[in-house]
Simulated scan of single mutants.
Amino acid sequence: MTYAIIETGGKQLRVEPGRFYDIELLHVDPDADYTVDKVLLVSHDDQVTVGQPFIEGATVEGTVMEHRRGKKVIVYKMKPKKKTRKKRGHRQEITRFMVNSISMNGSVIASAEAEEATAPVEVVAE
């Protein structure tokens, strides 16, 4: 199983090819390709490559699926005995990002198509 740890939006995220993730808003049109070059760690065939802080030449390619808003977060502030109350709500702007492949030094080491081909197939006996 191949995975990478990337940094985007000030957060670190473990990503695998063929899966989608909700990350901080990217200013890219939907259905456009996007490349993340801030790769901190890559694990492939039980070999782990760690960057200091980033791995040179490692990239994660993917497609921006859509832009959406996250769940509503309620912020409620109250001062006791002062009759002061503030209730505020906030919804974070997020981007749904589908990871297509993980590359190191220009060569693709894992892609969504390869993951689907090696996935076990269920056989239903009737």
Rank of each mutant, 00 (worst) to 15 (best):
Y3I: 08
A4L: 07
T8W: 08
T8Y: 08
G10D: 10
K11D: 10
L13W: 15
E16S: 13
G18D: 11
F20H: 14
L25A: 08
H27F: 11
V28P: 00
D29V: 09
D29W: 06
D29E: 14
P30E: 07
A32G: 08
K38W: 07
V39S: 03
L40Q: 07
V42I: 13
H44M: 05
D45Q: 14
D45R: 12
D45V: 03
D46P: 00
Q47R: 15
Q47T: 14
V48W: 09
V48C: 07
T49G: 00
T49Q: 14
G51R: 13
G51C: 05
Q52V: 05
P53H: 11
P53N: 08
F54A: 02
I55P: 03
E56V: 01
G57D: 08
G57Y: 07
A58P: 00
A58I: 03
V60W: 02
V60Q: 07
V60N: 01
E61Q: 10
G62K: 01
T63W: 01
T63K: 10
T63G: 09
E66S: 12
R68H: 07
R69K: 11
K71R: 15
K71D: 13
K72H: 01
V73A: 07
I74Y: 05
V75I: 14
Y76N: 12
Y76R: 13
K77Y: 06
M78L: 13
P80L: 07
K83Q: 08
T84A: 14
R85P: 01
R85Y: 11
R88Q: 14
R88F: 09
H90L: 13
S103E: 11
S103Q: 12
M104Q: 14
M104V: 15
N105V: 02
G106H: 08
G106R: 09
G106S: 11
V108K: 10
V108C: 10
A110C: 12
S111V: 05
E113R: 10
E113D: 15
A114M: 08
E115C: 12
A117L: 09
P120I: 04
V121N: 12
V124K: 10
E126I: 12
